[in-house]
Design a binder for these strands. Structure first.
Lengths: 221, 221
DNA sequence: TTGTAAAGTGAGTAATCACTCATTTTCGTG
DNA sequence: CACGAAAATGAGTGATTACTCACTTTACAA
């Protein structure tokens, strides 16, 4: 399964790719407007007429390119899914782990820095994903497969790697996994989606978060 | 400000209270049906006719009790807000901190146990809150005031307390606060809302989470 | 039992919705 | 320029929406 994963991800990215080159100027405007309005008002509360208006196109133009409103949503949300977890499957990423003495701090630093930037750059789309995922059963099923088949296995191997190196405590991997994923996602979502208006020193926040994740907030002995 | 807070919370809870005693049987049915449908399909995608149908009442009956559909939403979502952070302001809670040698582990254990149960019991309503809060400006403003005026100050004092006792590390309180709130919320949301179908040993998960929060997931020296 | 206010009803309404389609405009190519 | 195809248009459509209101039923105190 693990050999297939890299190919699978390539397909996934290809399949999900926006493929901007083949898109009309007006089509790009539509996607841009729809992204804004979906993230502002939610999918259901957004109307195709308003999207058309903000995009500066006729309403019919939307339906030339997308059969339904849901098609439009999926064309926005779909491409982001694979990209969100893509770094896990990149060659650069594997190399980092192949180096036998990679410090786990450096590993976390790279992940947090990269995903924080990613989340900030795609904040609007991520908001849409978070909002609409619970109400889109097909998409939800797809994501669940993505995680249970690929992401979970990948992260488990990463922790096995660092555990074997004696860099993290010995504990059931699903607990370590749950805790650190919560920490990473919590930190990224807090600063990129929930409270983007609070300005922070990224490097400091990242370093502090890693320190707390590895050594806790209790009094150091 | 701090003296007013207790009174303020009493008012808040009173004001927000469902006050079930004064409600008609059909009105309770409406709230129950609306809660289900809102959490299943989202506020905008839910129709009043479907709510009426599931509640077993005429559509007009809904509008006897609630001027608008949004009124119905707020009557469901409103009462939960104060309750979510209520424990912070309870007398029992203050007592726990007045005892000079309360272990921070015991403190976290009480908080996690209590809020995990709360989130499970109110999972549907909490889902609605999470989904709709970004799209309800008045409600969002209310929540922001709630946190910046009361919750933030309260939690800061708690950490000052434990910091003075030497039970947690010395670091900018906003960082400790952000990290531990993320940890608590992340753990509760994961098991109560995101993945309620995964059965866990609550006590074990709570204890392990507290241990990781205080001492990290790094190798123990 | 009777009077009355509150609770409940459901057909009706104007507005809005996603989507269609006949027509026009734009664009790439020979 | 000429021409065929793709892109874009916007008025039109049936369905659905939140909400109203004239009316009926229920609950309860006198």
């Amino acid at each position: 399964m693990e050999q297939n994963t890299e190919q699978w991800l390539a397909d996934m990215l290809q399949l999900m790719e926006g493929d901007d080159s083949k898109k009309t100027e007006k089509q790009l405007k539509i996607i841009q407007a729809a992204t804004e309005i979906f993230s502002e008002k939610g999918y259901s509360a957004a109307s195709t007429s308003e999207i058309a208006q903000r995009a500066g196109v006729a309403e019919g133009t939307i339906f030339r390119h997308y059969k339904t409103k849901k098609d439009l949503l999926l064309s926005i949300v779909g491409p982001i899914l694979a990209k969100t977890v893509a770094p896990l499957f990149m060659r650069d990423f594997a190399k980092l782990l192949d180096q036998p003495y990679t410090q786990i701090e450096d590993f976390y630093r790279a992940v947090l820095r990269d995903r924080l930037d990613f989340a900030r750059k795609n904040a609007k789309i991520l908001r849409i994903v978070i909002q609409e995922l619970p109400f889109q059963p097909e998409l939800l099923a797809q994501v669940k497969i993505l995680f249970s088949e690929h992401v979970f296995a990948r992260i488990s191997r990463i922790y096995a790697h660092f555990q074997a190196q004696g860099q993290i405590m010995e504990a059931p991997s699903f607990r370590v996994l749950r805790f650190s994923v919560t920490t990473i996602v919590g930190m990224v979502l807090t600063h990129a989606i929930l409270m983007p208006e609070i300005s922070i020193d990224d490097e400091e926040e990242i370093n502090w978060t890693i320190d707390a994740l590895l050594h806790g907030i209790g009094k150091r002995s």
